[in-house]
Write a protein that binds this DNA or RNA. Structure first.
Lengths: 257, 257
DNA sequence: ACATGTGAACAGATTCACAGCT
DNA sequence: AGCTGTGAATCTGTTCACATGT
């Protein structure tokens, strides 16, 4: 189990590094903005600045796609937009279903960037019968019972899970069984899926925790001006604070070696 | 990348790799679940499975924090929860403001995972005067005019931007000028900030595009496996060498700017 | 003259495999 | 015997610097 290895026939597909793939949408966005301003060409330096990366990285990234630039000149904006779109598979239409139409699901359904680029919200699905038929973002919500039929009728291969954590794995399994092979998971839980299914997760709480870590570190550096090496001694004392969960007030402070 | 502030001396080797920091919240969530079920100890193998990573990685990650396990036994759940919480800075309270109370902002305000761990929504801010005073998730929305005062009064150092793309940079600058040093950006735009300010971004549209890329690749592989069929345009130009890269679902959803 | 494209050096993250402790 | 903790090997991604082509 676990995410395991990547058995894959090994072959096919140009070997575009995952990190590069993750940046292509960024470049595409910057290029689209240039295109709208009718800018004909752009240098790696300029485009990199607009996308928030450095130019060497950008050139390396593009080199995986092919030689789409002109030395001494730069890149043709329109041409690059097309090439990247094609590489990302955005020249085709991707019907998407959103499962779980709570606050977040509704926000996603209303999200403009959705439709703008290749993606089309094919259906909204929720387990609450009282939601059925109610339009959200102009699309009537359908009941979970019909999930399989909806997936099938619309040829959906990408699903978005915006349900509570408790329902996510079950919804995931039904989506996969119905033929979905890519899932964007907003529920704060680890989904387990069979080989060949892609899952990406977006987790607000995790992002905030990462920020908190750095924030704390900044504060610590300031204090370093005077205080010397701080040992873990205070940890035990502080452990008696709250970690607050459950009826018991205080939390253990087990000391290992 | 997220920080850039390397702080020369490196007094105590508090050099926890960024990739490890990004996984700590994952471990913490799994541990919290175990804690709620009163599980006293857990092995790296079990915990790794629950967090969706492999056990070697988990042990390596924990080794950066210190030696918190017991050989032959495993890790004490409560103790680890405390240590990770402390490392992430979650033993203190982080007041957070959300700017831009549209669909998404409202969803964020209502998001339970927010309050659950260290974070507290101190204020909601929106530019629309007609929203002022209207409660969202029990918190009255305040007008952008008062942004600086709100940040200051509440000692806010973490801000969430959920405005339209066009307003994001300006909001960002005001937040930073008012003292915010960590920003979680949901607007589909690149924010530029001074040194010392952390930005993380969450971008739905980018996530979907990455999924589309892999989805397209799957379709391409099928087609190639069956026959020499071409899927859409000319695949002639390709034919370079390949390195079959497995998709493997879990790449950090977001990268620091 | 100028900006791309890329081999090579470097840096960071993951995995392996086993020594060391309980 | 079992599981952690970690050096070493490997893999992936980034940066450098310059050869290459227009």
């Amino acid at each position: 189990m676990a995410t395991g290895r990547t058995h894959r026939p090994a072959t096919r597909s140009r070997g575009i590094p995952e990190a590069t793939v993750a940046r292509l949408p960024l470049y595409l966005r910057a290029l689209t903005a240039l295109s709208e301003r009718s800018v004909p060409t752009v240098s790696s330096e300029e485009l990199a600045a607009a996308a928030g990366v450095n130019s060497a990285k950008l050139r390396k990234d593009f080199s995986y796609l092919g030689s789409y630039g002109t030395r001494g000149v730069g890149y043709d904006v329109e041409y690059l937009v097309y090439q990247i779109s094609r590489e990302l598979g955005l020249t085709q239409d991707w019907p998407v279903v959103i499962v779980g139409i709570g606050n977040l699901g509704a926000a996603l359904a209303n999200y403009g960037g959705f439709a703008s680029r290749g993606f089309r919200v094919a259906a909204l699905i929720d387990a609450d019968p009282s939601m059925a038929g109610k339009p959200v973002a102009g699309i009537p919500v359908q009941h979970t019972d019909d999930l399989e039929k909806i997936i099938d009728d619309n040829g959906v291969s990408i699903g978005v899970i915006a349900t509570p954590a408790g329902a996510a794995q079950q919804v995931c399994e039904r989506l996969v069984a119905a033929g979905v092979t890519s899932i964007l998971n907003f529920a704060p839980t680890v989904l387990s899926v069979p080989d060949g299914v892609d899952v990406r997760k977006v987790d607000l709480s995790i992002e905030l925790q990462i920020l908190a870590f750095h924030e704390q570190r900044k504060a610590g550096e300031e204090a370093e001006a005077q205080a010397g090496a701080v040992l873990e001694a205070e940890a035990a004392a502080a452990a008696a604070k709250e970690t607050g969960k459950g009826p018991d007030g205080d939390v253990p402070a087990v000391m290992p070696a």
